[in-house]
Amino acid sequence: MPQTLRKDDPLVRLFASFRTMSDRHKAALDPYLDVEGYVEDDHRRAHTRRERIDALEAKQFLEQVMGLLAEYYVLPTGLAVTLLGTDGDSHTLITGQLDTAAREVFLHGQCHAFARALSDHTGWPMAVIISDDCALNPDLCGADSVVEDVCACQLEHVVAVRPDGAHIDITGAHLPGAVPGYEGQEAVTLTDALWSHISRSPLWRRPAVDEARTFVAPLLATLDSERGAA
């Protein structure tokens, strides 16, 4: 049976916004239709152009909706999900289950998602480990590819920075310059500009932050146990 929403439920506002947008889109397309609701031949191109404009707005609205829902509703643990990792490889893992599969995807391809989720939860800043390999190559590091004085091709691995300076990723806590696989490499603060670049860059996967949030508590628990053992 359908459930009645509370007035303060975010879905109430989303439904209202969606209906308003849908009504506006219909009103914009109606002039191109005949009395039976079919596109008139003389208006087909104009109708298509208008549809594309409406589709773009609908896409942007959907992204806003998903962002808002993610703030209110957290994914449950124990849910099988498939995420894209490095080079588009697919990985199936169980939310909240900190195992080999989770470490693989959040180390290779979704490190930025886990760092973002951990940063949002703890308030710790993020950093990105960089490489100097491409910095002097004009074909890879041109003026158009520099963000915050860092070349886009140098960005390799994203971590959260604990107050004691430790770099935290899905594998645990590491001293600066000692993150496995990136030993001896410099890390720079992940600014809003760098995060924006990573989020939209075709070289990085869409950050699966919603799924990553379910692994924050298990990872923090392992860090606490390691500190206790020490």
Rank of each mutant, 00 (worst) to 15 (best):
Ala28Phe: 03
Ala28Arg: 09
Ala28Ile: 01
Ala28Pro: 06
Leu29Glu: 06
Asp30Pro: 00
Tyr32Glu: 04
Leu33Pro: 00
Leu33Ser: 07
Asp34Phe: 08
Val35Lys: 06
Val35Leu: 12
Val35Met: 01
Glu36Thr: 13
Gly37Met: 05
Gly37Thr: 05
Tyr38Lys: 11
Tyr38Asp: 03
Val39Trp: 03
Val39Phe: 00
Val39Gln: 02
Glu40Trp: 10
Asp41Asn: 13
Asp41Val: 06
Asp41Gly: 09
Asp42Glu: 15
Asp42Trp: 14
Arg45Ala: 15
Arg45Thr: 15
Ala46Gln: 15
His47Ala: 04
His47Ile: 05
Arg49Asp: 11
Arg50Gln: 12
Glu51Asn: 08
Glu51Gln: 13
Glu51His: 00
Arg52Thr: 12
Ile53Tyr: 11
Ile53Trp: 05
Asp54Gln: 15
Ala55Arg: 08
Ala55Phe: 05
Leu56Ser: 11
Glu57Cys: 02
Glu57Met: 04
Glu57Ala: 15
Glu57Phe: 07
Glu57Asn: 12
Glu57Thr: 05
Glu57Gln: 15
Ala58Leu: 11
Lys59Asp: 06
Lys59Met: 04
Gln60Thr: 01
Phe61Met: 12
Leu62Cys: 03
Leu62Met: 08
Leu62Thr: 03
Glu63Val: 02
Glu63Tyr: 04
Glu63Cys: 04
Glu63Gly: 01
Gln64Leu: 12
Gln64Pro: 01
Val65Gln: 00
Met66Phe: 06
Met66His: 07
Met66Asn: 05
Met66Ile: 02
Gly67Met: 02
Gly67Lys: 05
Leu68Tyr: 13
Leu68Met: 13
Leu69Ile: 08
Ala70Cys: 08
Glu71Asn: 15
Glu71Val: 03
Glu71Ser: 11
Glu71Met: 14
Glu71Trp: 08
Tyr72Leu: 02
Tyr72Val: 08
Tyr73Leu: 05
Tyr73Ile: 09
Thr77His: 11
Thr77Arg: 10
Thr77Glu: 15
Gly78Leu: 10
Gly78Lys: 14
Leu79Lys: 11
Leu79Ala: 10
Ala80Asp: 15
Thr82Glu: 11
Leu83Lys: 00
Leu83Val: 14
Leu83Asp: 00
Leu84His: 04
Leu84Trp: 12
Gly85Cys: 00
Gly85Val: 00
Asp87Thr: 09
